[in-house]
Amino acid sequence: MAFGRTERCSCHNRNNMQRNIRAFSSRSDATAATTSTVATSASPITPRRWWALLICATIAGAGVYLLAVQTAVGQAFENTALRGADQVGASAMDQANIALGHITVWSLGIATLVVGAIGLLRRQPALALAAVAVIVGGQVVTQSLKRYILPRPELVPVSGSFTENSFPSGHTTIAMTVMVAIFLVVPYRVRGLAMMLTMGWAAGIGAYTITAKWHRLSDTVGADLVALALGCAAAVVLHHLGKLKRVEDRPKARLVVVVVMTLLTISALVLGTILASAAATYSLHDPVIEWDVYLSAHAFSLSASWGVALIFWWSWRGIEVG
């Protein structure tokens, strides 16, 4: 009898062990399937988007230069906008000069140090170096293009400072590259706040250069594209170093900022197009038309800066430096 009980107990233990093995195997298969699903859904990050944007920015910059600087029509339009700026009120002109006057070698140096410090505080020396390189590289590229590479032929009768070459704008390049660098170094969770604070300022600097008659519209657009190209180059480098990762957290407040800025960009673009189209049928030397062309250039400048910022922001959707 004792032997029989022992035999039944052994069989019972074997059955329990087999059930445990099958249950463990099922759990392992489920875990493996879940892991496989997560790995499949998190697609690898590729630098193709930034390479494409870099190439497009370069081609667009060349196109803006050829159309606005190397054609009589482009020069006449931009000179008309600068003449229209003479009708700006004294307070608006003072505001533009004060805002532009704040951009100095000292303020640029401080901004560069702050950007680098944020990257180092995040224990990301490569990120800090890449962001600083965007700001410094922006001035190297802009000053080289403006002073040595891109001439401005005299295709229309003008006098004074209108004959000087100023493509691209150094001030706009500083503002836009600082915005891009801040975007790169701040943590993902505050990226929307950083863009909300810097996009308006950077776009305003570009528009102010037209108001103060420091630069033409094409100069500001060219500077926007220089900043976009350098930002994309920095992204490619960070990807090559394996510094990028995907994130799932996407705050709804950030979507509100994107929607509002997109609507403002489209509105400025539409307004600029309407004003420019209306002025095209009249003499560009009429004071009313000069004012309309100035407003058109101002609106185009804002839309270009905001548009470039939104495009660069989109290219980083769901991606951060980690």
Rank of each mutant, 00 (worst) to 15 (best):
F3D: 15
G4C: 03
N16E: 14
M17F: 07
I21H: 07
F24D: 13
F24K: 13
R27F: 12
S28G: 04
D29M: 12
S36I: 02
T37G: 00
T40V: 10
S41Y: 08
T46C: 00
W50A: 06
A57W: 09
A57S: 15
I59E: 03
A60M: 13
L66R: 13
Q70K: 12
A72C: 05
Q75G: 09
Q75W: 08
L82E: 04
V88W: 01
A90R: 13
A96H: 06
L100Y: 09
G101N: 10
I103E: 03
L108W: 04
A111I: 04
A131N: 07
G137L: 10
G138Q: 08
P151L: 10
V158A: 02
S161Y: 09
F162L: 15
T163M: 10
T163F: 01
G170R: 02
T173E: 04
A175T: 08
A181Y: 02
V186W: 06
R191P: 07
M195L: 15
L197P: 03
W201E: 00
T211G: 05
A212N: 09
L217W: 14
L217H: 11
D219H: 12
L228A: 12
C232W: 05
A233I: 04
L238Y: 05
H240C: 02
K243S: 10
V256K: 09
V258H: 07
V258S: 07
V259R: 14
M261L: 15
L269W: 13
A278P: 00
A279P: 09
A280H: 14
Y282I: 01
H285C: 01
L295F: 05
S303W: 04
W306N: 00
W306M: 14
A309K: 06
F312P: 01
W314G: 05
S315C: 12
R317E: 04
E320K: 15
V321F: 02
V321D: 04
